[in-house]
Amino acid sequence: MLTLAIETSCDETSCGVVKDGREVLSNIISSQIEIHREYGGVVPEIASRKHIEGIDVIIQEALDAAKVGFKDIDFISVTQGPGLVGALLVGLSSAKAIAYGLEIPIVGVNHIEGHICANYIQHKDLEPPFTCLIVSGGHSYLVDVLDYNDYKLYGRTRDDAAGEAFDKVARALGLPYPGGPQIDQLALEGDADAVDFPRVFLESDSYDFSFSGLKTSVLNYLNQLKQKNEEPNVADIAASFQKAVLDVMVEKSFRLAKENKRNKIVIAGGVAANKGLRKMMEQRGKDENVDILYPSIELCTDNAAMIGSAGYYNYINGKTSDFHMKVMPNLGFLE
């Protein structure tokens, strides 16, 4: 069964063709990172305009690369939310038009579920149940994946998303956007014990995250240096900040895996590309006999193939949408 998948929630225009939820026939991603870099973040209006300019071409590219035509597509998968309203609208409108024209079903997909499903593409044998940490520029969730399409939410952020904390600290350190990869790279050269930033675990039984206070303590630290006319050691600060974030994410993920007796922890979302996170998870996994899985860099970032995979598992579970479906910029995940 073939799905044409469309993802336009933020700054990537992506279309792909996925077979049976696991096999990617094509996954075309047109990134706008360069365009938004000069503004230090995604500019909504520019993002929407670039999506409109690119979407038709990218849909055709996806079909061509998969060596299929519209007639071969069984249903359309499209990101319904969360995301930027204008950006989502471009993808959803295109998806509706194609589904209407071809008289085939359409499946609205939650972007967060897409990130989880990226792992089904990467790891052909991966099956639920498992513990999943989803961390990206806009989201942070800790969930137990009971089955395809069946999740239990344990933790989410109470303020900033993990990736957002990286972006904001990077901005304060004078590093270019997006901040995550920059901090990750610098952290390799820095001393992670140089500055003792707080680890925010919240209540002892909580699986929630809070990164805003950590961001503020990095800013306070930088201000204090400035008052003393001292130059900050950017690599040390990056390494210390990153360790403070990762310590909490790793600890909570392993605690949840233990609570639910899971022997697999799956990482998803843009921050899953963080080398420091992967390494720390794998080391701890080795000690505690827990398998650590994550997608390739390409599948960590926003992409249509993951939406196609999530769309497939929704479709076979009877969850299709209708043409009244609207974009949902504030769509939560299991909240």
Binding site: V43, P44, L84, G138, D160, A161, E164, P329, N330
Partner: peptide
């Protein structure tokens, strides 16, 4: 939570609350 990603978050309380972050608007 921080509205940085979606720009506007909506909440229901005693009254509706619309929480904006317009940092990236030009």
């Amino acid at each position: 939570t921080s509205p940085t990603f979606a720009i506007i978050n909506e909440y229901d309380g005693r009254l509706p609350l619309y929480h904006f972050d317009v940092y990236r608007l030009n």
